[in-house]
Design a protein around this nucleic acid. Structure first.
Lengths: 120, 120
DNA sequence: GTAACATATATGAAATAACGTATATATAAA
DNA sequence: TTTATATATACGTTATTTCATATATGTTAC
């Protein structure tokens, strides 16, 4: 992970918000981020695709939903930067977290094993 | 210091190089950075001006030279990010540091008090 | 004073990034 | 198999960033 490429990804309001929300919540789907950030679905999807392509995010499908999480391959220093940024700037995602938690009908998280079981 | 504004400043090769070199050397003047990065003087000056305006760098004049250093007002979390980036990516500035140290006739650093004295 | 050096800024062109909108794909429910 | 929901992508436009070049400012040496 080249430092400049990494910071280019953090240098956008939508992308940094997605990253810090996902960091706080372990994983989030597109519709949750769309609601929390109050942005259009294509806009959120486009930025998530970019973050995934750049190696900052992983994704997994669960039924209709795709959940994004911080990439397990992200270098330690980069993860530290994200954590430090989130901890020292709580106000940056405060209202977005509030909107997220206020949201009704969030998709249930199901572990990979259990999910397969209940739909086979 | 807004996180996104901060990361915008790190999201450019010239600027991140300047920041990490200055971090490693305490302070550097434009001609030293121009030599270390092998870039045109106006290009380096422009980026340094941007970093100063954004609050990441301080400057002080000493005779013909202007020395830039990491801003004393930079939030702690932001300074930590810079330090972590530099420590974990030594190869990013390795060759630039080499060019800098190979450089002949670097301007002498003089403390503010002594400088005034010797030219009054 | 003038010349030489270090740095800053202005300008317009070129490259890059972000956007809204429309549409495509994939899954699940009926 | 049709419908609804969630997500992804394509396209053309607009906004932002970066750049090279030329020029201006400020300092020192002569």
């Amino acid at each position: 992970m080249e430092p400049v490429a990494f910071y280019k990804q953090l240098a956008d309001d939508t992308r940094l918000s997605c990253l810090l929300l996902i960091l706080a919540e372990q994983e989030l789907c597109v519709c949750e981020l769309t609601e929390a950030l109050d942005l259009s679905q294509p806009k959120v999807s486009r930025h998530l695709a970019q973050l995934k392509k750049s190696g900052l995010l992983d994704d997994r499908r669960q039924g209709k939903w795709i959940f994004y999480s911080i990439s397990k391959d992200l270098p330690h220093w980069a993860k530290l930067v994200l954590i430090e940024t989130g901890q020292q700037n709580p106000e940056f995602i405060k209202d977005k977290l509030f909107k997220l938690n206020r949201m009704g009908s969030r998709p249930e998280r199901v572990g990979a094993c259990c999910y397969k079981e209940s739909y086979s």
